[in-house]
Nucleic acid binder design. Sequence first.
DNA 1: TCACAGTTTAGAATCGTTCTAAATCCGTTG
DNA 2: CAACGGATTTAGAACGATTCTAAACTGTGA
Lengths: 144, 144
Amino acid sequence: MGKASRDMAVRDAAAATARLRHAGLRPTRQRVELASLLFQDHDRHVTAESLHDEVTAAGVKVSLATVYNTLHQFTQAGLLRQVIVDASRSYFDTNTGEHQHFFIEDEGHLIDIPGEAIAVAGVPTPPDGLSVERVDVVVRVKRG
Amino acid sequence: MGKASRDMAVRDAAAATARLRHAGLRPTRQRVELASLLFQDHDRHVTAESLHDEVTAAGVKVSLATVYNTLHQFTQAGLLRQVIVDASRSYFDTNTGEHQHFFIEDEGHLIDIPGEAIAVAGVPTPPDGLSVERVDVVVRVKRG
DNA sequence: TCACAGTTTAGAATCGTTCTAAATCCGTTG
DNA sequence: CAACGGATTTAGAACGATTCTAAACTGTGA
């Protein structure tokens, strides 16, 4: 292992810790581990189970309940965004900026579409006492 | 009860039966009941449970399993469209034409947005061997 | 170092949905 | 119009994702 990757690993944990503190979350062992995995890449899409598998494969022991708790806490803290595309499971996206998604239904796989790329025109004013929270666009794609 | 509503009821069952036959589905008692309820209004959004409650309240005995089966069969037959907006339950829409939705998260309530109203521009070409199946737009709204 | 609120955990519980195998129904045939 | 056979319905079990619970543990400020 070279110097760069060692530094990387160190920086990951430090960056994760800083990020957690900044978000008002106590940097516990589990949260730091999960944050390191999640935020090493800019655009990640995970489910509770995929993340649990990943952290477990990395040799770290974190319960599934904690993964669920953590995903929700991160989401509430604005570190993650929940993406609803599949009736049977929830995805979480490390990209919290404005953007949309391709969803490959057969594979259960998401791909980001940059926010600038897509424009939604003509959204009507919502009825009476309602206000727009967010506009989600899902482009469902298939093989072939 | 006046003549009009009596005629309505008759027409409902007859229309439902015709609709089922046309879709290649045997018009069983349960399917006719459910179709009558579903297609009396043009734009309905139901969940399996809401429809089950409704049919039960109407004094008709249909099992929840049959409601699920029927919703899926109707969807496959093109009589319904499934709408994915909520991680915890599936909605079915009697409007199968091109259109989008407001989703009132607090109430779990959907409102149609006509297809002509909304325009989505700039959807990128999907990667390699993928083709666009459908573009779903969900306008999430809140009280206030 | 201590204490305590915050966090994690295993396992049970819950929720929507699907499955299973048996009972029933419907349309056709004889 | 009775009987047959495949389609349909059903109750209840099973399932998978998620949440809850109560007990054990762990950061952090004093």
